[in-house]
């Protein structure tokens, strides 16, 4: 019962903290550019604003267009339930890391179909580019997570990875962990449409990927899409923080441990957000057809991680 409650709290925590993480990234980026930047709470205000608005919907869209924001949000909520945040145990067999990857696929698939709705060129453009990247992102993601399974030697169960990694202690710090984490970090950046893969702040329709697919959304539909993409970023960071560097996470349900876990994950999220902002400020967006090279690098890193585990 207690673990169900904690799981629910974890999910709510992830949903609640996602806009804040985006706010922090934006703020740090602004500071790097010598701008004052918007308040870190601005994403919440934006969401509230969007939720209050009426929607404009293209007349060439089908029922799917209206359903997609709900499904995207549902996929992210389910992922929030599945991801360990400050406590390792999870509620029930929703699935394992393989399911996790496929839920991201569900999310992306919906986004892509949403981009094709309405028949605008920019939506199709975003969808087509997103699909190009996804072909390389997903296997890399799968391999990176698989190498963690092999490293922790605990099967594909999500919650056992942090537990077993902590149990391994300093022995967990092997090349495989770093390789897998590096691969995952590249995937994080790519999957969340960040520079150098995509520019989240661009206004140029012709260069858009993620934003292009959202172009037809407005009002509350847009609010859900924005929130779910903010959640995706946070979930990825949380996964990096709990499955690759789990130290600090609580393995028991005791108050103090949970508190430590909470603080740890908050610190990790802020650090990751800061690093992401620094990364985004220090490089430019890559050429569209050079992104596969980076993704291949991520793929190879993940493959190396597993093979190094077997060989070393």
């Amino acid at each position: 019962m207690m673990s169900i409650l904690v799981s629910a709290i974890q999910a709510v925590f992830l949903i609640a903290v996602s806009p804040l993480i985006t706010g922090i990234v934006k703020k740090v980026k602004a500071l790097m550019q010598h701008r004052r930047g918007a308040d870190i709470l601005q994403p919440y205000r934006d969401l509230a604003k969007l939720l209050r608005k009426d929607e404009t919907v293209s007349e060439s869209t089908s029922f799917l267009f209206r359903v997609i924001p709900f499904v995207c949000m549902a996929a992210m909520t389910l992922l929030a339930f599945m991801t360990p945040v400050f406590f390792t145990g999870i509620l029930a067999p929703y699935g394992d890391i393989v399911t996790l990857v496929y839920l991201f696929t569900l999310y992306r698939f919906c986004m892509v179909l949403g981009g094709l709705e309405g028949g605008s060129v920019f939506g199709g453009m975003g969808s087509s580019r997103e699909m190009m990247m996804s072909v390389l992102i997903e296997p890399a993601l799968l391999l990176a997570l698989m190498s963690m399974c092999v490293l922790s030697n605990g099967g594909t169960d999500i919650s056992s990875i942090p537990t077993l990694l902590i149990a391994l202690g300093s022995a967990a710090f092997c090349p495989a962990l770093l390789l897998a984490a590096a691969s995952f970090a590249i995937t994080l950046v790519a999957e969340n449409a960040r520079i150098p893969f995509d520019n989240p702040a661009t206004h140029l329709e012709l260069t858009m990927i993620h934003e292009g697919m959202l172009l037809e959304y407005s009002g509350r539909g847009l609010a859900l899409m924005e929130l779910s993409s903010e959640m995706r970023l946070t979930i990825f960071m949380t996964m990096l923080g709990t499955m690759f560097f789990p130290w600090g996470i609580s393995t028991t349900l005791e108050g103090l441990d949970l508190l430590v876990g909470l603080v740890a994950i908050l610190v990790k999220l802020v650090v990751f957000a800061f690093l992401l902002a620094v990364l985004e400020s220090s490089i430019s967006k890559s050429r569209l057809f050079k992104t596969p090279n980076m993704l291949t690098a991520s793929f190879v890193l993940a493959l190396l991680a597993i093979i190094s585990l077997y060989i070393l």
Partner: peptide, 25 residues
């Protein structure tokens, strides 16, 4: 998945907003 969708849909139905039909951008 269904529960989240239904809850969200229910909430949206409860606090209804207008939908305006327009042509694609």
């Amino acid at each position: 998945l269904a529960l989240v969708c239904i809850v969200l849909y229910g909430l949206f139905r409860l606090f209804r907003k207008d939908k305006v039909k327009v042509s694609t951008w």
